[in-house]
């Protein structure tokens, strides 16, 4: 059985720190024996005590320190304990790290990644459950990626660090305990492969990757849920739904999605962000502009409600996007209901 996602991420950090003596890892409560709130950093400080540092509760300051390391030609990865707190580092991300790549009139590499444990469904309440990706969409110089069970974390993080652009890496907290998919197999029905120019988009299909009734685009955090929905659609409604999971959320990789979207003529985007100014809206606009005539229906957006995320499980479900919401949206788009 494949490793858990959190193990893959932990091993990725081990490998990156081993490969690069100029790479630092900073964050709150990272060091052993605690090893981070989600145990992603377990074992790292024992091997590299000089470069894996537990910090004060200073998200803005930590990302600033990472920016300073990057400015000095080093590399840095920051863990924000809960991505909600990345709001405290917004200035350093927006006004320093991202802008410094260009505002001095020449390309200045800023090799830093801010890791953001993200999302709800764990009952942590309004300030520990959000999906803040949308707030970082469209910042010049900044790249957004999301952890997925299809994409090897070492390759994604190495790619971000190598790009010279600062990156945010969103990690769905429920996904940590899922298994990675391996060898092109999702389950007895579904297969997957990596497509797009740099293999950035995971494509999940049944029988024939060139045939489907609808394309369902989700970030990595919803990948497992989207696959479950596709399975239900197939078995209950006889709808063939292809799931596309781009690793990179921003800048948009529309080219990697367009062939499948054009073939199906139908597209649904699902994400856990609350309504308004979403990643999906950007995707929809891009697809509408480029493939309007190939679409049989407008791109449908599915997201959480325009509300704070409650703590109690029965209330949290009323706000966060549910599998049934995604299922209904795909079915409506396909049947024209």
């Amino acid at each position: 059985m494949a490793e858990r996602v959190v193990e893959n991420l932990n091993q990725a950090l081990h490998a990156l720190l081993a490969d690069d003596p100029g790479l630092y890892l900073l964050g709150e409560d990272l060091v052993d024996p605690y090893g981070g709130a989600f145990k992603v950093t377990r074992g790292l400080s024992t091997r590299w005590p000089e470069r894996v540092l537990s910090t004060p509760l200073s998200e803005g300051g930590i990302v600033g320190v990472a920016g300073g390391l990057a400015l000095a030609g080093q590399r840095a990865i920051v863990e924000i304990m809960f991505s909600d707190f990345v709001a405290l580092a917004f200035d350093q991300i927006l006004n320093f790290a991202s802008k410094s790549t260009a505002m001095y009139g020449r390309a200045v590499p800023m090799r830093l990644v801010v890791r953001c444990p993200t999302g709800g469904n764990r009952g942590y309440g309004p300030t520990h459950s959000q999906s803040l990706q949308k707030h970082f969409v469209g910042i010049p110089g900044l790249t957004l990626c999301e952890m997925s069970p299809f994409h090897d974390n070492r390759a994604v993080l190495a790619g971000l660090l190598g790009s010279g652009r600062p990156g945010l890496f969103f990690e769905d907290k429920v996904l940590y305990t899922n298994r990675m998919y391996a060898d092109g197999v999702v389950d007895e029905l579904f297969r997957y492969d990596l497509v797009g120019a740099d293999g950035d988009v995971a494509r999940v299909w049944v029988d024939d990757p060139e045939q489907c009734d609808c394309v369902l685009v989700v970030p990595g955090g919803l990948a497992v849920r989207a696959v479950a929905v596709a399975r239900e659609l197939l078995l209950r409604d006889d709808i063939v739904c292809q799931v596309l999971v781009p690793s990179r959320l921003w800048p948009l990789d529309v080219d990697g999605l367009l062939p499948a979207v054009a073939r199906a003529g139908r597209m649904v985007v699902a994400e856990e962000s609350t309504a308004g100014g979403t990643w999906g809206a950007e995707l929809a606009q891009a697809v509408h502009t480029r493939r309007w005539k190939a679409l049989r229906a407008p791109v449908r957006l599915v997201h959480s409600a325009d509300q704070v995320i409650p703590t109690a499980a029965h209330l949290e479900r009323t706000v966060l996007v549910q599998d049934a919401d995604i299922h209904r949206a795909v079915k409506e788009v396909v049947t024209g209901a």
Partner: peptide, 13 residues
């Protein structure tokens, strides 16, 4: 903004 950035540079130095 520059104070933590400079702290990061100083960490490297």
């Amino acid at each position: 903004e520059s104070v933590p950035v400079a702290a990061g540079v100083a960490l490297h130095l």
